[in-house]
Nucleic acid binder design. Sequence first.
DNA 1: TCAAAAGTGTTCCGAATACACCCATGC
DNA 2: GCATGGGTGTATTCGGAACACTTTTGA
Lengths: 241, 241
Amino acid sequence: MKTPSSYFLSDHTIPLNDYFVFGLSIDCVVFGYHEGEIKVLLVQRDVEPFNGHWALIGDLVEPDKNLEEAANNVLENLTGLKNIYMKQFFTFGSVDRHPLGRVVTVAYFSLVNSMNYQPIASSWAKSAEWININNLPELAFDHYTILCKGIETLKNEVRHKPTGFELLPKKFTLLELQLLYEALLGYKFDKSNFRKKIQEMNILRPLNEFKLNVSHRPAKLFEFDEKRYRTLEKEGFSFEL
Amino acid sequence: MKTPSSYFLSDHTIPLNDYFVFGLSIDCVVFGYHEGEIKVLLVQRDVEPFNGHWALIGDLVEPDKNLEEAANNVLENLTGLKNIYMKQFFTFGSVDRHPLGRVVTVAYFSLVNSMNYQPIASSWAKSAEWININNLPELAFDHYTILCKGIETLKNEVRHKPTGFELLPKKFTLLELQLLYEALLGYKFDKSNFRKKIQEMNILRPLNEFKLNVSHRPAKLFEFDEKRYRTLEKEGFSFEL
DNA sequence: TCAAAAGTGTTCCGAATACACCCATGC
DNA sequence: GCATGGGTGTATTCGGAACACTTTTGA
């Protein structure tokens, strides 16, 4: 076998081909939020290897596709959803992680706002379901490792960047926001203080609309003001909860 | 071309081989700290492509090597340094990022404590040098993009985790630590407040040693207490500067 | 009238800030 | 003595935590 330093050689008669033996895949950890619980989208495999096991959604990357394209395709093919928040978080490449060969996988996580989307089975999967992250089944490949790292990354990110909003519908109440963050971070906030803090950040746009048909005082609806956030961010503001 | 979903097929007569056409490489952003400046280790290429350009250190991954092994090898081969702090931060895989084929690169950054290490040239590089991150030359491939992302990740990490210590010698004074953080974060601290804060964290072990041969009052030396930090971390403590 | 959530105000405490001051050493 | 960095103390300010209270709606 040639030494890896062929990477740097100018002599094209020494081919790089010996090293073009990798498979490349994308795996997506898709988070959703429903009834106060953080869920993740899993499919049950209907094929070998790992037939019957649950797995993250993912696919091989076509050789002429960029990583982001491939990741978007994975999500769109399974859910039909476009323009979803997505972020690469880690690459897993253990020699033995895939039984069919050396497949390196680039992992993304994405946040899907709510359950207006109902997952559907596909040709290679018995079923697709939202599963509570505190009640996970056994997973195929190294997907458990990937999922854990994804959860860790999400919890980390959500604390320092206003990404949590992606899990809510566009218009939401302050209590809904608070409950989401409580589920994400695993502890309770004081109602008054939470409201004060988040509103003083100036990244929420209050609407003149209210929750309807509730048997109590209707709550005001808010939108996340992305443009305002970008401006504040440039001025040195940093989100923190 | 076969559809990517062959990933999921159990029928091995439909080969995955069409998709095993990727090259995989590692690139390392090696940070150092000297005389109040953050520097990065770059090599000047002596071969095509990008002959004469500066580049990050890196190499192709051998098909039977794990990513971390490969990353450690890259660093060890060039610098002779072992057991260096290293962290994967992003994977770059644009279709056209490498002129010789589809090469996906997994980027790591590492922190090298100080300049007792003098970089040396190697077979495929004219020279290797520590270069101030505010005065970068033009770089080969997409290495400028990689480097920028690495700097961003470092600045982010250093604020929330006590990784900055890796850039200092084992024994350091509080002023040295303060100057390091000022260089990393780009702003000044108040001496008194900085000392109070860092010492109250209880992650520094004060030594009974002092800086010698200085023309002013000798400063006490400290060590980073890694074991203590791990303990505190488990108890919920989080580093913040 | 009651339940349930919306929404506000106030006090208290601790941490961050700003700044002033003294200490030890080499020259 | 004085320049240089080492090292400490304190008053003030600001933001978070805790908690009590009022408001609005449907049933």
